[in-house]
Design a protein around this nucleic acid. Structure first.
Length: 451
RNA sequence: GGAUCCGUAGCGAAAUUGGUUAUCGCGCCUCCCUGUCACGGAGGAGACUGCCGGUUCGAGCCCGGUCGGGUCCGCCA
């Protein structure tokens, strides 16, 4: 819109006539005087509609919350008695001189500002509920995390790549894939960009990808969704997994620093606090962690191949109290729990040079060194009872030479959820896809039929 | 898939050991209001208490089933 002044800049136009545009956030009607809080993407300002100006009063009298308006207005400083020190632009207001209704809105399903709503209702009305200040703060923080990830890796000489989401085989093992019909053939949605980022290490040595991944697991928890955003990176010529952990530590320091600089008001609004990332995030081998749990709690999980959610939470509490860190790496998961490309530690047979990063109770990263030797990889595939023939396309990268390499992936929604104190990962996902929902509840259809 | 909790106007909640017309706040409608900023005041509409069945003189409340949701677990590179 030409000549439009943004609300955050109005303070520079005191006593001047300006064009502003935005949505009605709230309306306070005093009869011959109406106050309308006008909102654009930069802020909120109080607009005064005075009945003395009959023409504009009649135009704006019907305006309800979420109506979009274009206003010709006079910017004014507020008199001392009417200054509100608690809000943005509390020392100024605009007086409507002329108005154009750009768009109307239906009656709202509930009040945006004061609503304490259930998660189900929140998700049912996302096109509306995402307009709340709380939701906006969460997704500004999420955008900053992705931006910082991108900036850091660009600085470190990584190249951003776009990995395909449609794949032929889903035989990677582990998580189930969604299958789809592809011109008469069976195809799948990618559970990760893993194979492609590894292939690209042979091309560019350092690559990263930000994209959606798909998991066809019918789980129903506060930390799982079936489509999520993976912050993936892969790097060549590493000595071991510890180098990856150092890289991730530097990355996290950068992300937290940027959030501190750019999102303090968002964190304040969410009543959330940033974690301190130490220069050296503590790490334990899985077996050491399990011995610690046994020693401290008496619960014996030392023969388990993985950590239970409750133990992940316990380890995070332990690290916070005793190691002065809200992050903790757990390394050396057994080969049996890791995919076929995971590198076995020569000094700890049966265990892998892989790691999980735990943060505020849940796993936000899995990473590790990969097998780069062609013959060893073939053996590893066979050891998982998989058919190397099915991986022949991917295996070309190794056949034609690969450096020692490794990588990691951060679950964007998980780290966001934990940073903003969201109880459920769905609050940190713009449009969550889960067992019960693609936008609308999938059971709605069923429900109708059963009436 | 298992365990557990829950389902009452558009939204959020209340309803004594089962008792008569199901209550409150917000929102909505009508009217009043020139300094509010979650404005205020007066009045009003809106619910077959998720659904089906049972026990009872009587069910929002007890029982069974069913549908839906939350949480935890399982599962999950």
């Amino acid at each position: 819109m030409k000549n439009r002044i943004l609300i955050k800049d109005l303070k520079n136009y005191i006593s001047k006539e300006v064009i502003v545009a935005g949505a009605v956030d709230l309306r306070r009607d005093h009869g011959k005087l109406i106050f309308i809080d006008l909102r654009d993407h930069t802020g909120i300002v109080q607009m005064v509609v005075n009945k003395k100006n009959e023409a504009v009063y009649n135009l704006l009298d019907p305006a309800k919350p979420e109506w979009n308006l274009k206003i010709k207005a006079l910017v004014k400083s507020r008199s001392e008695q009417t200054i509100n020190p608690n809000i943005l632009n509390g020392d100024l207001e605009i007086e409507a001189l002329d108005a154009e209704i750009l768009g109307q809105a239906s009656e709202l399903p509930f009040e945006k500002q004061t609503a304490e709503i259930s998660l189900e209702t929140y998700l049912d009305y996302l096109p509306f509920t995402l307009r709340t200040e709380k939701a906006k703060a969460i997704f500004r923080i999420q955008a900053q995390i992705a931006k910082s990830f991108r900036e850091f890796l660009n600085q470190e000489g990584f190249l951003e790549i776009q990995a395909p989401k449609i794949i032929g085989e889903d035989a990677e093992g582990g998580a189930n894939s969604f299958s789809l019909e592809y011109f008469g053939h069976l195809a799948h949605l990618a559970q990760s960009p893993q194979f492609y980022k590894q292939i690209m290490v042979g091309v560019f040595e350092r690559v990263f990808a930000i994209g959606n991944v798909y998991r066809a697991e019918p789980h129903s928890t506060t930390r799982h969704i079936n489509e999520y955003t993976s912050l993936d990176l892969e790097i060549g010529f590493i000595e071991d997994h510890l180098e990856l952990m150092e890289l991730e530590t530097k990355l996290l320091i950068k992300i937290m620093k940027d959030l501190q600089e750019n999102n303090t008001s968002d964190f304040a609004l969410l009543n959330a606090s940033l974690p301190i990332v130490s220069e050296k995030i503590p790490f334990l081998k899985l077996r050491e962690a399990q011995e610690l749990i046994k020693k401290e709690t008496g619960e014996d999980c030392t023969n388990e191949p993985d950590l239970e959610p409750a133990h992940e939470r316990w380890l995070c509490e332990y690290a916070k109290k005793n190691l002065d860190s809200e992050f903790i790496f757990i390394t050396h998961y057994p080969l049996s729990k890791r995919p076929m490309y995971t590198y076995e530690d020569e000094n700890d047979p049966g265990m892998t040079k892989s790691f999980d990063l735990l943060f505020r109770g849940i796993e936000i990263t899995t990473g590790g060194q990969r097998v780069h030797d062609y013959d060893k990889l073939i053996t590893a595939i066979k050891n998982k009872n998989l058919d190397p023939e099915k991986f022949s396309y991917y295996l070309q990268a190794f056949k034609y030479g690969m450096p020692p390499h490794g990588g990691l992936a951060i679950g964007l929604e998980r780290i966001t959820a934990k940073l903003v104190n969201a109880e459920n990962i769905r609050e940190a996902t713009l449009f969550p896809r889960d067992l019960h929902r693609i936008d609308n509840l999938l059971s709605k259809e069923k429900k109708e039929n059963n009436k």
